[in-house]
């Protein structure tokens, strides 16, 4: 029984990392409808930036800032240099998925070429293990949870109480209408890529801080869980991604306690399948029928 309760606490840690990444992914998808499968590899690249920062003895906070900054700038450049030209020339939704797969391959293999098939760890200590009732967490994990909560609140405030947030939601709903209403959708899209990239970068650093050892493929492996959380919550819906992350984070850990660790991923996929069965349109059919990629 105590393992069960502990698993809930462990699930919150996983959910926190997942939430940071999934909200970034879904924010970007919600506004641009680009299914960016290079997201996980961008997380890895940001993690390497964080690694370099911690090697310079600047600590976890600086690593997250640097990782976030890298992720934001890289994502804006990625959109402007690669994705946007394709969209302007008429590449549609599914074509863009293929483009993002190509970008993912380039990034992943580029990282392998630079860093080799070696493993790296952030130069930080996980800190003391603290016990809160049945829950045990390290100080680094508490930091990750705190950052995730802060980010979720910030995203909520941004979307609900700022002009940019309203412009982002308007662009996500109908980019043409938003543009006709005077919204600079090109700037909004840039801001969306910047924000989602920042979350991607912070998520990458948080992920490798938790798993302790990473290589060029780490983020790419995490993308499956990110997609699952994003789809579960309703892709393009930041609040849905938060809920999705929490459900997936808790479900994978609790399933490891109740059933078998072998079925962690299976549990995540089973939840995804059930959700898609309940909502028959599903992610791809909805996107294909009702939405198209947005560049400006």
């Amino acid at each position: 029984m105590s393992v069960f309760w502990s698993s809930l606490g462990f699930g919150v840690v996983t959910a926190s990392i997942l939430a940071i990444a999934a909200v970034g992914f879904t924010l970007q998808f919600g506004a641009t409808n680009i299914f960016n499968l290079a997201y996980g590899d961008t997380m890895t690249a940001a993690a390497f930036v964080g690694y370099l920062v911690t090697r310079a003895h600047l600590g976890l906070w600086a690593a997250m800032l640097a990782g976030g900054a890298f992720g934001g700038i890289f994502s804006v450049v990625l959109n402007r240099a690669v994705y946007a030209p394709f969209i302007r020339r008429g590449t549609r939704l599914f074509g863009m998925i293929i483009v993002s797969i190509a970008v993912s391959l380039i990034l992943s293999n580029g990282l392998q070429a630079i860093w080799g098939a070696n493993f790296y760890s952030l130069a930080i200590t996980p800190g003391r293990s603290l016990r809160f009732g049945p829950f045990i967490m390290t100080t680094v994990q508490l930091v990750i949870i705190a950052i995730a909560i802060a980010i979720m609140l910030a995203v909520h405030l941004l979307l609900r109480h700022t002009r940019l947030g309203r412009a982002m939601r308007a662009t996500a709903n109908n980019a043409t209408l938003a543009r006709n209403c005077g919204i600079r959708t090109d700037l909004v899209i840039d801001m969306v890529w910047l924000l989602s990239g920042i979350l991607c970068g912070i998520g990458g650093v948080a992920l490798v801080a938790n798993i302790t050892s990473f290589d060029f493929g780490t983020g790419g492996q995490f993308i499956v869980l990110i997609l699952t959380a994003a789809v579960l919550g309703g892709v393009g819906q930041p609040y849905g991604a938060m809920i999705g992350a929490l459900v997936i984070g808790l479900a994978t850990e609790v399933s490891a306690a109740i059933f078998s660790p072998e079925y962690k991923e299976l549990t995540a996929f089973a939840i995804l399948v059930v959700i898609l069965l309940i909502r028959p349109l599903g992610i791809l059919s909805e996107v294909a029928q009702q939405k198209e990629v947005v560049v400006a």
């Binding site: 997942l18 994978t252 660790p261």
Partner: peptide
């Protein structure tokens, strides 16, 4: 334990 590979956590 037969564990799923490359998960973000194995604390449970």
């Amino acid at each position: 334990q037969s564990i799923a590979l490359d998960q973000p956590s194995y604390r449970t």
